[in-house]
Design a protein around this nucleic acid. Structure first.
Length: 402
RNA sequence: GGGGGGUUGCCCGAGUGGCCAAUGGGAACAGACUGUAAAUCUGUCGGCGAAUGCCUUCGGAGGUUCGAAUCCUCCACCCCCCA
């Protein structure tokens, strides 16, 4: 790849580079840089939010540098204190391996495997003696650790902070020492941890890493950062229709942000789109359709993007029956005296979490066959009346009964 | 080590012997309206049952009582103040 100005490529979609001078100097040295990114092995999906930093990492690869993925199988036991402020459940080595397998497949939808190294931090953190830990801990002060937003907040709110959580930033920072990182990428919430890495590296006589921070992508709920545990995410392995549909559901204010962080659409074009939405020249819905198409194109194909767009317009805008709904047989549990009990059918197909829930949905008018609502929670129909029809539950769950 | 406060449903938070499956808010889900947006209005929001109803739930284990989220005992965990 021929890039005349590597720095400006690397700057897109970042919030802060600490420091740009250092980065420029390291780039000029001409040697391939080791670019570190920590990976949380407790998740099994690469989300668009995570893809933001992965895409940045890919930019580095295109410039000839090496991606160093650190699987935090050791640190996962501690749990990053940022965010939910809860200690995570411990994972077995097997569970970790399982997630890593799933995730690495997805990661290579973005990264170049030839320029990627993978490490497990258990390999060095797990091997440390207590003495090593004490020595590491001596290189940082309590006051500085407690500066961390989350700790400060929890202290103020009288919520617990366990000793081991205090060690978390040190563990993560030590990873940088171990792999001799030149650059570390991360979401903005990683700022504290990544800066600790810088400081530790100097203590260990290494040149401190450059820290590059990306904004956190807001999830489909429009409020919280996108994360698997919050369920407001789009996975890079979602089907085209899902990916498209989820993208269409984001609030308008996020359009520009998503374009910048999730697509390769040039920034000046993004700015035009946003301006037109604001001025009313463009319907924000159409801007989102473009966005959704771009995203599907990136992880599937441009054709799949068009296809998903068509599906969306037909199914939701024009409220047609979906062309091809997932097929489902009538489970035995849904039958009673030869008739099909609608509530049981909905429940048995997993479209409602309990029988009672299914009845409530029916009562609320959320259940229909071929567009015809079923209003009676106790309705039962002859099998002939349901087979071949499309069952709709809520806004976007469809099953073709066969 | 001493003293005080706390642990309620997805979250926050009321409830201090029966009227409590447990007020209220948020989240979530559904309906209407739409652009599968936002805002708004309405409904639902432990499980099972056609139903009077039954079962499970208020940190854990016991106990008192006709009856306990509420009282007692022990245990676990958390916070604050003092040392």
């Amino acid at each position: 790849m021929n890039v005349t100005d590597p720095l400006s490529l690397l700057r897109r979609g970042t919030l802060e580079i600490i420091s740009e001078e250092d980065l420029a100097r390291k780039l000029e040295s001409g040697k391939p840089l080791r670019v570190k990114l920590g990976v949380d092995p407790t998740v099994a999906h690469v989300t668009l939010g995570w893809a933001v930093v992965l895409r940045k990492l890919r930019d580095f690869q295109r410039l000839g540098h090496t991606a160093c993925l650190i699987i935090g199988d050791f640190t996962a036991q501690i749990g990053d204190p940022s965010g939910k402020s809860k200690t995570r459940p411990q994972l077995t080595r097997e569970q970790v391996q399982e997630n890593v397998r799933a995730v690495s497949e997805q990661v290579y939808k973005i990264l170049d495997p030839a320029r990627t190294e993978i490490f497990f931090n258990r390999d060095w953190l797990g091997a440390m003696t207590f003495e090593d830990v004490i020595r590491l801990a001596s290189k940082y002060t309590v006051a500085r650790i407690l500066e961390r937003d989350d700790f400060e907040k929890r202290l103020r709110e009288e919520r617990p902070i366990a000793m081991h959580e205090i060690l978390y930033p040190l563990c993560q920072g030590y990873d940088s020492v171990e792999i001799k990182a030149d650059v570390e990428l991360g979401g903005n919430d990683q700022k504290f941890n990544n800066l600790v890495g810088r400081s530790l590296m100097s203590h260990y006589g290494l040149e401190p890493q450059v820290v590059i921070l990306s904004p956190l992508l807001i999830g489909t709920d429009g409020k919280e950062k996108m994360s698997q545990s919050l369920g407001n995410y789009v996975s890079v392995v979602d089907t085209p229709n899902d990916m498209y549909g989820k993208t269409m559901s984001i609030p308008d204010e996020l359009i520009g942000n998503w374009f910048e962080l999730c697509t390769d659409v040039p920034m000046d074009e993004v700015q035009t789109i946003v301006a037109e939405c604001v001025s009313g020249t463009m319907n924000p819905r159409d801007a989102k359709r473009r966005l959704a198409r771009e995203i599907v194109a990136l992880y599937h194909s441009p054709e799949a993007g068009e296809e998903a767009d068509r599906y969306f317009v037909e199914t939701f805008s024009q409220r047609k029956q979906p062309v091809e709904a997932e097929e489902a047989m009538i489970p035995d549990g849904a039958r009673e005296d030869g008739a099909v009990v609608v509530a049981r059918l909905v429940h048995a197909l997993g479209l409602a979490k309990s029988l009672g829930d299914a009845r409530r949905l029916i009562q609320a008018g959320a259940v229909a066959f071929d567009g015809e609502k079923v209003g009676d929670p106790y309705a039962s129909l002859a099998p002939g009346d349901v087979v071949g029809k499309v069952l709709k539950v809520g806004k976007h769950q469809f099953r073709k009964i066969v």
